[in-house]
Structure formats: C-alpha cells, structure tokens
Design a protein around this nucleic acid. Structure first.
Lengths: 129, 129
DNA sequence: CTAAATGCAAACTCTTTGCGGTGAC
DNA sequence: GTCACCGCAAAGAGTTTGCATTTAG
C-alpha cells in the first residue's frame, strides 16, 4: 500500500482517517478544518497535497459535482450518487445500475464505455428542512 | 423568451449564437475567444455574465465535468454525455436511458429522483489519435 | 430620460507550487 | 545523511463584482 520512496507522515494518516470516517464527500477545506482538531499546525497546502496524492494512488476518490467544487470520497468501490435538491446532501447509490446501461448504450450506438457515472437529483422524504 | 426588464444586446446575441452553433460544450474562455472575432471589444466579464444569465433562464445549460471546469451547452433538451478517455471530447447521448433508471432506483431504494445525469467514459473507435 | 448592459480592473475563491526547514528511515 | 514531507506564503487559474460609461427602449 505504501508506494516506493514514500514515507509515513502523521498528517497523511490523519487526513486519510478523516476521509474514510465520513460519508459527507468532503471538500479539501472541510478536511483541513477537521484535521486541525488533532494537528493544529497542519497547513492547507499539506491537506491538498495529500488528498491529491491519495487520490492518484487510488486510495480515495476525487469527485466533482455540479457546484464545481472538488470533493473526496473514502469509498473507492464504484458507486453512484443521489444529490438532495433540498439540502445538497449526497447519498451513495449501488453500482449495479452501470453494466446494463453500458451494454444498452453499446447496442444502440456503438459507443463502448468502460465505466459510467450516474447522478440522481431529487428530494429525500426523510430529510428535515 | 426575453425576460421582463431585460434589454437586447449585441453581445448577448452573439454569445448565444456561438453556444448554439457548437457541439463542443465550450468553456467561458472559449466563447470569449470566439466572440472576439465578431466583437473585438467584448470583455470576458460580459461573457461570464451573459452565459450565467442565459443558463439561469434555462436558455442554455451549465455543465461541470471531471476536470472541474464549467462548460455550457446550447442543447437544453435533457440528454447525457459520453466522454472520450483518449481525447476528452464530449458526445451527446440520448435521454431515453433516464426514466427506467429512475424507476428502478425508486423500487429498489425509495429514493425519488426527478432527473438523473449519466456520464459514460470510454474510447471511441472512430477517433483519430 | 431611465436603467440595463458594457468594458475594465480589482477582488475573490479554490488550488498549486517554490522554498527553506524538519523528520522518517 | 538523505530526501520525502512539512508549514508558509506567494502565485495561478477561473470566476465574480464594483464602478463609471454607454446604449436600448
């Protein structure tokens, strides 16, 4: 899991722990604020560097939603998202919808996709206002 | 189509014409460069203002892809996208895949989506390197 | 004449980067 | 001791905004 030439750092460990512990699909800034609880001296640059490094290695996922902000996700299994139009909260949706869709697209159009990303938008009944 | 209190402007007309005339899902900067051919004095701020205004009115669409850049689309009919992993080119895909997916999600999970956005990623055989 | 829209430039937000110092190994 | 990583602060990219001026109606 550790790449050659890479060293342990408390900062990276903490950042990874934070991203894995939440389902909120956080931005770099949110991770920065959280990490400061444990490591007050940590810098925003370090958070960005490590999030990108972890994402490049496939240890976490990098996502972009309609607001244009980059978000990170500790869940690297392929899956989709449901965005609440009321609160902006993002829920994980099972990956099972992909394959049939990809097959159908290929039959219809000849476009051969290897992956697909689905985002649903709607209201979630169980949410508070 | 014109909203109350809104006035005609050559700049807005030109910007709309450019976005409608292309299938390249352009960024604001690209639209700016194009518009300068016809209106050399146009400013980037004006391009941004008008693209956002047109998008807010639903006359064009505002899109965000994985590169995090905002793009605009003259095709406002609901549709999906296929992104070439080789060239980054973005192709339009028919909307017909949505409804079945939304229905199935509701049956499976109770999440009631009103729209969904599908992005396919893959190689396109017909493309040049 | 009124106020919408423009051009310009400054400001803002998010992200990356250069550098000197620190710490893992 | 080496060099990966850090904290800091400056720089960059993309986008928005305040203001004086122009222009549609």
């Amino acid at each position: 899991m550790e790449k050659a030439g890479q060293r342990y750092s408390r900062q990276r460990e903490e950042i990874l722990k934070i991203v894995r512990a939440t389902k909120t699909h956080p931005t770099a800034d949110w991770v920065y604020e959280q990490s400061r609880h444990k490591i007050p001296s940590i810098s925003l640059g370090t958070v960005y560097r490590n999030l990108n490094l972890l994402a490049d290695e496939g240890i976490i996922r990098r996502l972009v939603f309609e607001d244009g902000k980059v978000r990170f996700d500790g869940n690297v299994d392929e899956h989709h998202h449901f965005v609440s139009t009321k609160t902006g909260k993002i829920y994980d949706i099972d990956k099972k919808y992909s394959q049939e869709l990809i097959d159908k697209l290929y039959q219809d159009t000849g476009f051969k996709a290897t992956v697909c990303k689905i985002e649903f938008f709607g209201e979630v009944d169980s949410e508070e206002a």
